[in-house]
Design a protein around this nucleic acid. Structure first.
Length: 191
DNA sequence: ATCTCGATTGGCT
DNA sequence: GCCAATCGAGATG
């Protein structure tokens, strides 16, 4: 399946978050390939989004949100790595948090890394999927639109599905808009 | 140099 | 449902 081009990401962040559902995140590591269908996302904007890492000034931690679209943006919260994709054109902050995937390839690796037997516990949360797919801060800044990258996002080929939306999870101050998107009735969605 | 906090998770009551 | 774990980095003095 073809890799998503940069133009896919350089649009309104909520639109990208919604359309990322059903696309496929692929990690081609030495140990083996893991991949999964994206089933839950959240959109984060800049200045007037109080929940965003980019709501305040640009720092060593959040600078990637101002870069061009289609780059990996990984940071830690508590003990977990959270994986995001940058959106909007260079200079405009934005990113989409990938909150859950449905495993496709490399399920044996994911089970081992997560130390769980229940497959629904492998990737049904933003910190869970990074552990399962072994995504860490070393992937910060990787170009997800380059077919030679270790980490890429490709088109998917799935039956049509319904999407739902809600307010974002775990944020202390949210906007009025519903900026969380998920595949309806998919068991790998968190909660 | 020290304090504080978080886009989470898992274990225990 | 509640709460501790645990870590980087921004904020403060």
């Amino acid at each position: 399946m073809p890799v998503l081009p940069k133009s896919f990401y350089e649009r309104d962040t909520a639109e990208v978050a919604r359309e990322l559902l059903g696309k496929v995140l692929v990690h081609r590591a030495r140990e083996g390939t893991t991949s999964g269908k994206i089933v839950e996302t959240e959109a984060y904007y800049g200045k007037n989004d109080p929940a965003s890492r980019a709501s305040r000034k640009r720092t060593k931690l959040n600078w990637l949100m101002w870069e061009c679209g289609g780059l990996a943006f990984v940071y830690m919260v508590h003990t977990h790595n959270l994986f995001n994709v940058t959106t909007e054109r260079e200079g405009v902050p934005g990113a989409v948090l990938i909150r859950a995937i449905e495993p496709l390839e490399g399920i044996e690796f994911m089970l081992r890394r997560r130390r769980v037997s229940n497959k629904f516990e492998m990737t049904s949360g933003p910190g869970k999927l990074t552990q399962a797919m072994q995504i860490t801060r070393k992937h910060n800044g990787i170009d997800l639109t380059n077919n030679r990258s270790e980490l890429i996002i490709t088109e998917g080929e799935f039956e049509q599905f319904k999407r739902g939306s809600s307010h974002r999870i775990g944020v202390s101050a949210d906007l009025k808009r519903k900026l969380r998107f998920f595949v309806l009735d998919n068991p790998f969605v968190s909660r």
